[in-house]
């Protein structure tokens, strides 16, 4: 009873560039620091969400990616979130550990879990839906496809948002895609790999 699934939209944020559905949306100066890069996207996209400035960089990446992917509106509030990355919250873990030496910072500590990003996204888009966060060495299409199919089978679910949002030592790698019952691209390993790492350019 497996329903056929499609990739509706995708976003890649990598190497100072943002792509939406494989089209270059924004390119910034490669010399920008990560925080300046994130702020530049925020400004360029004309976003108004003061909570953004309170987030750690991992959540900022997820937030910005989803704003661009969904054009600021996830209409289906049952949209499930299936996210993964390689380095968990290690970037913020290290920042918190540095604060620990003198005054442990609660506002850093709270971000020392990767799924906090899912909390931020759920708050922003008012999603009281299914959430899961996985860790894998590298982008694992099989994991996303497997778990997404499961969600579609179990639930009267119509949309899943898959996200690979990784950040460590200022190296970031973001790939997001909306999976639905209709859309342009078949949801399979080959297509996911192509969208995640285009070989042309």
């Amino acid at each position: 009873m497996s329903r056929k699934l499609y990739i509706k939209n995708s976003v890649v944020i990598r190497d100072s560039k943002i792509f939406r559905n494989e089209e270059l949306l924004l390119k910034t100066n490669e010399g920008l620091s990560l925080s300046s890069f994130l702020k530049a996207i925020y400004k360029e996209q004309n976003l108004k969400y003061p909570k953004f400035f309170k987030m750690d960089s991992l959540s900022k990446l997820g937030y910005l990616g989803v704003e661009i992917l969904s054009k600021g509106n996830i209409a289906d509030k049952q949209t499930a979130l299936v996210f993964a990355n390689s380095t968990s919250s290690l970037e913020t873990d290290e920042a918190y550990a540095a604060s620990m030496k003198k005054f442990p910072s609660p506002s850093l500590f709270v971000y020392t879990l990767p799924n906090i990003m899912l909390g931020e996204l759920s708050i922003r888009h008012e999603l009281r839906s299914e959430n899961s966060f996985f860790i894998s060495e590298s982008f694992d299409p099989e994991l996303f496809i497997g778990y997404t199919k499961i969600l579609f089978q179990q639930e009267k679910i119509e949309n899943v948002l898959c996200g690979w949002v990784d950040l460590h030592n200022n190296d970031y790698d973001v790939f997001l895609c909306q999976i639905a019952l209709s859309g342009g691209t078949d949801f399979n390993e080959e297509e996911l790999k192509k969208l995640y790492l285009p070989t042309h350019e």
Partner: peptide
Amino acid sequence: LYLWKMGNMISDFFGFKSKSIIVSNA
């Protein structure tokens, strides 16, 4: 420090064939 590396250490100890799946959701 990578959770997947910890997973590999544990998985390799026993010789599981498939890579471990790590769930980290608070």
